[in-house]
Computed example of a mutant assay.
Amino acid sequence: MTRAETAYHGEKGEYFAANATDSAYNAYTDRPAMLGLAGNVAGLRVLDVGCGAGHYAAELRGRGAAAVVGVEGSETLLRAAHERLGDGAELHHHDLERPLTFLRDGSFDLVVMALVYHHIDARDQLLLELRRVLRPGGALVVSTTHPASDWTSFGGSYFADERVELPIGNEFTIRYWRMTLEKFLGELLGAGFVLQQLVEPRATEEAREIDPRRYEKTHAKPSFLAVRMRRP
Rank of each mutant, 00 (worst) to 15 (best):
residue 1 M to S: 03
residue 3 R to C: 09
residue 5 E to M: 03
residue 5 E to I: 00
residue 6 T to M: 10
residue 8 Y to D: 13
residue 12 K to H: 11
residue 14 E to R: 12
residue 34 M to Q: 15
residue 44 L to P: 04
residue 46 V to A: 07
residue 47 L to I: 01
residue 51 C to Q: 06
residue 52 G to Q: 07
residue 53 A to I: 03
residue 58 A to V: 12
residue 60 L to T: 08
residue 63 R to Y: 03
residue 63 R to S: 05
residue 67 A to Q: 09
residue 70 G to F: 05
residue 83 E to A: 15
residue 93 H to P: 05
residue 95 D to W: 11
residue 96 L to P: 01
residue 97 E to L: 01
residue 115 L to S: 06
residue 116 V to D: 02
residue 119 H to R: 00
residue 120 I to W: 00
residue 127 L to I: 03
residue 132 R to Q: 00
residue 133 V to A: 04
residue 134 L to E: 05
residue 136 P to I: 02
residue 138 G to N: 02
residue 138 G to D: 05
residue 141 V to R: 08
residue 143 S to H: 13
residue 145 T to N: 11
residue 153 S to F: 11
residue 156 G to R: 10
residue 158 Y to M: 13
residue 160 A to F: 02
residue 160 A to G: 12
residue 161 D to I: 02
residue 162 E to Y: 03
residue 162 E to F: 01
residue 172 F to P: 07
residue 176 Y to H: 10
residue 178 R to K: 10
residue 178 R to Y: 11
residue 184 F to C: 00
residue 192 G to L: 01
residue 196 Q to Y: 00
residue 196 Q to S: 06
residue 197 Q to N: 11
residue 204 T to P: 09
residue 208 R to N: 11
residue 208 R to T: 01
residue 217 K to F: 01
residue 219 H to W: 12
residue 219 H to F: 05
residue 222 P to A: 06
residue 224 F to C: 05
